[in-house]
Design a protein around this nucleic acid. Structure first.
Length: 423
RNA sequence: GGAGAGGUGUCUGAGUGGUCGAAAGAGCACGCCUGGAAAGUGUGUAUACGCCAAAAGUGUAUCGAGGGUUCGAAUCCCUCCCUCUCCGCCA
C-alpha cells in the first residue's frame, strides 16, 4: 500500500510511475488526495468536539468530588449534545477512512526507475543469459514422459486422490524432491538466512499484509469453515512474522528462509503448455525473505538475485534473468527479477524464481517498522525470492540431464540423494 | 468437544467508575560515580493520526477486537478472538 503522504507530495511522479505499470485508473490518485483532505477535516472536527466533551466530563468529576452536585447537574444537562455530535462525526470519520482505505488498496506499488515500460512478458528485459543450452538428440523426451519412464512422478494417481495439478512423487522422484529441498535450505543457511517452519494456512490479516488480499483473492484456496487461506507462497506467513512489529536498528537485516508447499488455484489454465510439472496447484518451494533498511534494499535485491543464480549455476542449468516490465510485474513489487531455466526437451524457458523488492508497499500494510538512527519509527523495506521453486527445476533437470544411460544427478545433489543416476 | 480462570506498556505486575497513557519493579538508553566494570544514583523510556512552516508544544484515539451503558470506562454489560487449567478425543 502506498503512503498517502508520499502520494500528496509526489503526485506527478506517482502518476508517471503508475503509467509505467499500465495502471488503468490514474484518477484514483486525485481521489485519494481528496479523501485524505476530507479525512483531515473530519478528524479535526471530531477531535475538537471530543476535547470539549472530555473537558466537561473532567469538570463534572471535579465538582462531584467537591460536593457541588447542583453545578455538576447543570453541566451535565449541557453535555447531551456532545454525544450525538461525537457519534455522528465519529461515524463520518470512520466512513471516510474506510473509503480512503478502499481506494488506497487499489493502487499498485510504484515501479522502480529501471523498470522497462511494456505490457506483455515479451517486453521483459533480458538482463543476462548464462550457460550452454544442451543439444539433445531427436529422441529426447519431455519431462512428463521421463517421469513415467523412470517411475518418478505419477500424475494420474494425483488426479485420483485429489485432482489435476497434484502430482504424486515416487521412489527416486520423491527422493530427488526431498534432496533439492534440503540442498536449497542448506545453501540459504550458508548465505545467512535463518530457517523457519511456518503454518501453511493463514488468516485474512496475513493475506492482506503481503498484498494477496484483496487483489488476488481468487488465486488462493480458502477454507470457509475456519476462514483461512492456504498459502500460495511461504512469503505470506514468513513476512507476516513481522506484522505489527517495530524492529530495533541492530535487528536489521532480518533474513529468513523456509520450505513450504504452495497452493495455487490457477483457475482456468489448462492445456499443453501446462503439462507435467509446468504448472501445478500444489508445489514445493524454498523461499528467502529479507527485511532491510530502505537505503539497503536494492543492494540486497542484487544479493538475493545472485544467490538464486548461484543455485542455478551449481545445478548446472542454463538460465536467464529477466527484469520484468511494468505490465508483467506483480501488484506489490517495485522491481522484480525472474529467473528462467532452459528446458531443452520442451525448447522453452521456464520460470523457476522471482525475486522482488517491495520497498514499503508491504511494510505499510504490515505496519512493519524499525527505529532509525534518529530514534524515529520508519517503514522497513521487504524483499523475497524463490530459492527455488522445485517442479520446474525438476522438469529441467530431468530433460537436460537425460542420457542413453539414464538421468544424471547434478554433483551438488548427490550427497543429498545418495544416488548419481536415475536409470 | 465439555467445565472453569484469565487477557493491562519490552517484561513482571497494580489498578472494579473520574485526578489513569495507566502505580511499582525489572529491562533498556543517556548522565553521574569508578582506573575500568559491578553496585549505587539521577533522568528518560508506547504507537498512530490531527493542529503548527518546523521544533517545542498541543488535541484525539488506543489497557485482546468490536459494540453498548454513563456527563465520564482499563474498570460495568453484550458479542467475538486468544491464552491457561481440568476432563474428553487424538498424531
Amino acid at each position: 500500500m502506498l503512503q498517502v503522504s508520499y502520494i500528496r507530495e509526489n503526485k506527478e511522479q506517482v502518476l508517471e510511475r503508475l503509467a509505467v505499470k499500465n495502471f488503468k485508473q490514474p484518477e484514483l490518485v486525485e481521489e485519494v488526495i481528496r479523501l485524505d483532505d476530507v479525512r483531515k477535516q473530519t478528524q479535526n472536527r471530531t477531535d475538537s468536539i471530543s476535547a470539549e466533551a472530555n473537558a466537561a466530563a473532567k469538570q463534572i468529576g471535579e465538582l462531584m468530588r467537591a460536593g457541588k452536585k447542583e453545578e455538576a447537574e447543570i453541566l451535565k444537562a449541557n453535555t447531551g449534545k456532545w454525544k450525538e455530535e461525537i457519534k455522528q462525526y465519529g461515524d463520518e470519520l470512520a466512513a471516510v477512512e474506510s473509503e480512503l482505505q478502499q481506494k488506497l488498496v487499489l493502487l499498485p506499488n510504484l515501479p522502480h526507475s529501471t523498470v522497462p515500460k511494456g505490457l506483455t512478458p515479451e517486453e521483459n528485459e533480458v538482463v543476462l543469459e548464462q550457460g550452454d543450452k544442451p543439444q539433445l538428440p531427436a529422441e529426447a523426451l519431455p519431462h512428463w514422459e521421463l517421469a513415467a519412464k523412470y517411475k518418478l512422478i505419477d500424475f494420474e494417481l494425483g488426479v485420483k486422490i485429489t485432482g489435476a495439478g497434484f502430482p504424486v512423487y515416487k521412489g527416486k522422484g520423491a527422493k530427488l524432491q526431498r534432496a533439492m529441498i534440503a540442498y536449497f535450505l542448506d545453501e540459504a543457511e550458508k548465505a545467512g538466512y535463518e530457517e523457519v517452519v511456518v503454518p501453511l494456512l493463514v488468516n485474512e490479516a496475513s493475506g492482506f499484509g503481503t498484498g494477496q488480499l484483496p487483489d488476488k483473492e481468487g488465486q488462493m484456496y480458502f477454507v470457509n469453515e475456519d476462514n483461512l487461506y492456504l498459502i500460495p507462497t511461504a512469503e505470506v506467513p514468513v513476512t507476516n512474522l513481522y506484522r505489527d512489529v517495530i524492529l530495533k536498528a541492530d535487528e536489521l537485516p532480518v533474513k529468513n528462509c523456509g520450505y513450504t508447499p504452495c497452493f495455487r488455484r490457477e483457475a482456468g489454465s489448462y492445456g499443453a503448455h501446462v503439462r507435467g510439472l509446468n504448472r501445478l496447484h500444489q508445489f514445493d518451494k524454498v523461499e528467502i525473505v529479507q527485511v532491510v533498511r530502505p537505503e539497503d534494499s536494492y543492494k540486497v535485491l542484487e544479493e538475493m538475485s545472485a544467490h538464486v543464480q548461484g543455485l542455478l549455476q551449481k545445478l548446472g542449468l542454463p538460465y536467464r534473468v529477466l527484469r520484468l516490465c511494468g505490465g508483467d510485474m506483480g501488484f506489490a513489487s517495485a522491481l522484480t527479477y525472474d529467473m528462467e531455466t532452459w528446458s531443452a526437451a520442451q525448447q522453452r524457458w521456464l520460470e523457476v524464481s522471482s525475486v522482488s523488492n517491495f520497498e514499503t508497499f508491504q511494510s505499510n500494510r504490515l505496519k512493519l517498522r524499525y527505529r532509525n538512527a534518529e530514534g524515529k519509527t520508519q517503514l522497513a523495506h521487504t524483499l523475497n525470492g524463490s530459492a527455488l521453486a522445485l517442479p520446474r527445476i525438476m522438469a529441467t533437470l530431468l530433460e537436460n540431464n537425460q542420457t542413453e544411460r539414464g538421468i544424471k544427478i547434478p554433483e551438488v545433489l548427490v550427497p543429498y540423494t545418495r544416488f548419481e543416476w536415475i536409470e
